[in-house]
Write a protein that binds this DNA or RNA. Structure first.
Lengths: 226, 226
DNA sequence: GCATTCAGAATTGTATACAATTTAGAATAC
DNA sequence: GTATTCTAAATTGTATACAATTCTGAATGC
């Protein structure tokens, strides 16, 4: 057998993508043999990858019953949004005193370039990707890799929820394209307190809308024939 | 073969304990066959458990080379302490508005009971456990399970560093037993701002001392014959 | 001495086999 | 019709085998 690159990593990446991109339904049980066949590997490396995803919180596991797509209760969603606040606000605070003018300027330019797309795009998934990228780039300015890692992890876990939220937001165009600029202005002014306030209210607003969007989506599940 | 409980979980717990309790030296390569024999299992479930620990950040993995005990650079330590600030301060902020008087009272009583031990104990490991428990109990008052989980994860990863720190602190009795009470007083008064300040300065002081302690410990490595 | 080469040993990567357990569904009783 | 029991099928749990790769250390050349 000839091998050039890591198979487990490939399987892990593929599974992670599937989990994040809603290929599994909440609470769905994953069939190991079927998944292994689909990813052209055997159950041994597959299970190693699945175990990583359990540790990351994307899947759950029950002895003798297997791996399941993790579902989120409203409480879970609240907890995760609060965690986002903790991570992003602290990262922003650090960025205010650490990021160089050049780095801030570069992010402002990226934002200016992305904004037209953000305002015009019809593709909800693309919007979500843009939004996530802004927040990740912002967090990266803190220079703290752990905070960045945690933000990425939280993002992955609420991605499904945020997509529902954005779909809803597009429909009624209730988004606030100013929010990101406001955060950037405070950062550029090295105004840690103002940045904290702007970030908090931005995430909080998104959380409220997401909760509402999820409520609507759930209610629609009960009248699926329209 | 008769089985009553999960083997992978048992192996995972054992490995985690070993990793947290310094059974592996930094950057040490773990021998799968030896570990499997030691834990009385085979390599298949062992590797599943090891993969979980990689996802948690306690170990690292290199294709075709295996699993390694993760070592921490000074930068890593700084990042982790900053993450602690982010998580604990936000949890405390939430606790200030959410925790019931009864819960706060119960934690104050626990602290009062633990303090004599904290002041007198010679056992550094016991001190560390007490300190970790206070911080975890405090974070639990936020009602946010994700923040709690993250704090536990960070604690596990800097446990080795904190032990070095505490050993050093005991030697020169430079600890501040007032710090925890101060945080509790602000919490009881529902003073979110004061609590934030107290927590920040507490963790920051510990971080500085830990960095110093690690520096001393490292320097001692170069003169090991005394 | 120091670097390089190259078997052989040790170790990791993973497919497979089979035991243990759970699940699904038919048969039965009420 | 509903609940219960039981058997067969499906699925998970893990030990093992062997291929692929890396590591070790002796032999060689400079």
């Amino acid at each position: 057998m000839v091998k050039r690159e890591s198979n487990v990593d490939r399987v892990y990446d593929a599974l992670r993508q599937m989990a994040v991109d809603f290929a599994f339904k909440p609470d769905q049980r994953l069939n190991e043999s079927a998944l292994a066949a689909q990813l052209d590997t055997s159950r041994t490396p597959l299970r190693e990858a699945l175990n990583r995803l359990v540790a990351e919180g994307l899947l759950t596991f029950q002895t003798n019953r297997g791996f399941f797509c993790r579902s989120l209760t409203p409480k879970d969603i609240l907890d995760l949004y609060e965690t986002r606040v903790a991570v992003e606000c602290e990262a922003l605070r650090l960025s205010c005193s650490r990021a160089s003018d050049d780095e801030i300027c570069a992010l402002e330019m990226w934002l200016a370039e992305a904004e037209p797309m953000y305002l015009s795009s019809e593709d909800t998934l693309e919007l979500l990707t843009l939004d996530e990228e802004f927040h990740l780039r912002l967090a990266r300015l803190s220079g703290n890799n752990e905070l960045l890692r945690m933000l990425a992890s939280v993002n992955d876990r609420i991605r499904y929820i945020r997509l529902i939220d954005l779909k809803n937001m597009c429909a009624r165009s209730g988004g606030d394209p100013e929010a990101h600029r406001k955060i950037m202005r405070a950062l550029a002014a090295r105004d840690a307190k103002g940045a904290d306030t702007a970030m908090r209210s931005h995430i909080e607003k998104r959380r409220e809308q997401a909760t509402e969007a999820v409520r609507i989506a759930f209610s629609q599940l009960y009248v699926p024939m329209d």
